[in-house]
Design a protein around this nucleic acid. Structure first.
Lengths: 147, 147
DNA sequence: CAAGATTGAGAGTTCAATCTTC
DNA sequence: GAAGATTGAACTCTCAATCTTG
């Protein structure tokens, strides 16, 4: 049925593909951010809480920065704001006096659960709208991009 | 064969899909940012220059903010930094004394051309690694996401 | 009163430099 | 010296408030 016409088209502006993907990602990111904002969280704060809940024990700021893929100074300030919010607490590491660990508070545990519910709702909507075969294509692109 | 649950065909951790997409987008965004940094530009600055070159005449800051999908105060500060860089110049609009337009400088024109070359190189790599049918799937997802 | 632009405050991020501890 | 954390400066971005002009 197809007669080479679909892929052969050499659009005059091939610049658009990457930026279209980035734009869609920003739209999706805004949706996640809005969903988390409804329970008083931001994406970076939820990411930290999620990591702490998953691991089940306090983590050093360097460790958190490594897991979240950001620099250490970023984690310093993020944990500052989260401590102000009452989501985490800084605790000394008796084993290494250079290290400072972030310990999740009961408030943080509660907020993480609320955030996870919001994210689950988004995932249902995402799964309903995308479809399994397109998700497979997405997986291939992700793998190719992550090099 | 499934006796009780219909949903256990899904992966045990469906949480990851959206965040995997977002992570890949950030990786791609970093690549574009690095490529533009090689010629002394950031993505927001390149976006503004690109718009001004495409339109071919000065644009009001509100107009730029609308085209780039950000708030006006953002454009005020971005144009501040671009004026410091010598990429654009603020010019008064004789037709509307409230408005301020951004006019691209010769330096800005030159930088936009360099940036466009960098983006083209990235695009070749992207096209080589992704493939036409996956790009079609990407297009469907983008459309679904942009609602 | 609407619209265009700016300012101030703050979140999130990076980098370079610094301080303490290993 | 290298690692863990912090600080200060800068960029990008948002929101709320303000000022000028239409």
């Amino acid at each position: 049925m197809n007669s080479t016409s679909v892929i052969d088209e050499n659009d005059p502006k091939p610049d658009r593909t990457i930026f279209a993907l980035l734009h869609a990602a920003h739209t999706l990111e805004a949706k996640v951010g809005d969903a988390l904002a409804e329970v008083g969280l931001s994406m970076p704060k939820f990411a930290v809480l999620n990591e702490l809940v998953t691991v089940g024990k306090p983590l050093a700021l360097s460790e958190l920065a490594g897991r979240l893929g950001c620099v250490k100074s970023n984690m310093t300030q993020l944990v500052d704001r989260m401590e102000t919010d009452g989501l985490v607490r800084r605790v000394d590491d008796p084993a290494d006096r250079r290290a400072v660990k972030a310990e999740i508070t009961p408030e943080g545990v509660s907020k993480q659960a609320e955030g996870a519910r919001q994210v689950d709702k988004l995932h249902e909507a995402f799964g309903a709208v995308v479809g399994a075969e397109d998700r497979a294509a997405l997986g291939r692109m992700l793998a190719a991009l992550d090099t």
